[in-house]
Amino acid sequence: MSKVKELFNKYQVLAYIVLLALLCVVPFALPKAVYVRYACNILMYATLAGSLNIINGYSGQTCLGQAGFFAIGAYTMGALSTKFGISFWLLLPLAGILAAFVGFLVSLPTLKLKGIYLSIVTLGASEIIRIIAQTWTPVTGGAMGIKQIPYPEMFGLDTFRPKYYYFIFLFIGVIFLFVTKRVLQSRVGRAWISIREDEIAAKSLGVQTSFYKSLNFMYGAFWAGVVGCAYAPFVNYIEASQFSTDTGFNVLAMIVIGGQGTLIGPIVGSTIVTLLTESLRFLESWRYVIYAVLIIAMMWLRPQGIAGASRSILAGGKIKRKKQAAGAEGGATNG
């Protein structure tokens, strides 16, 4: 096992390229268009869950309102592309920036708040966004929603076919992972993680926790907005009920099932949840029952998630004392 890891580290770039190439083949290898749709969903939710994971998994806030940021992105795309015909590729960053701005606004009242107080504010904010989307008819189409959102231009390909739309989600997902990995390995990422692990200690080391929490919210919201922007043309029709708190809970379930505080966790979670809910479609309402049972069962059996939450305070707070610890104690006496 360690040898595999070693090899992987040695040829890291190569490994990623192979992986990416495999992912590129997926839509052509799948026999049915509907499977490609599932693949699109998996990629989309993986990125969305990843964006929530930035907030919940890396800075340790419990945000329950990711659906709100997602909605901002989707409605930016829906409204501006249908009304002014602005290009998707221009709206993609714009949606992110708008969502980040809303994320900033939401973060303001939460800076003083902790734990569950913060959660209810994010939840309330997401509900407010949904209700505004439902009622602001001139812009959001109100209860009717926005129909016929134009498909993005992409090298003249028919992006209305999931086969090609897949690449838009893949593109976003890869960029997200690439950028996020870089951020996490930097001073900013360390500051986030330090807030998650021990806020008082972080403060005493000069980490401006308010600033970094706010930044964290904005960063997470940015990506949720970007994914939302790509979601709108994919489903072609958006309306407020697609962004209910249940959507937010669903994404939360993905990161907890997959594992919080790791980059791979949301991907695993998204894959499991999407495959499960799609493959059980024939069971109709029962599939939600099975999904609910799965969530509870996961919390009982493997609360750290399938991929295993990072070694962190989120994993349940148990530290395993291994060989190293014994060595450390030996060292302490003569050290």
Partner: peptide
């Protein structure tokens, strides 16, 4: 108030924040 789940090196690295 250590960051218990981070390596010793990472703990000290956060100290370099300012």
């Amino acid at each position: 108030q250590l960051f218990k789940f981070m390596t010793v090196l990472d703990n000290v690295k956060i100290g370099c924040h300012i």
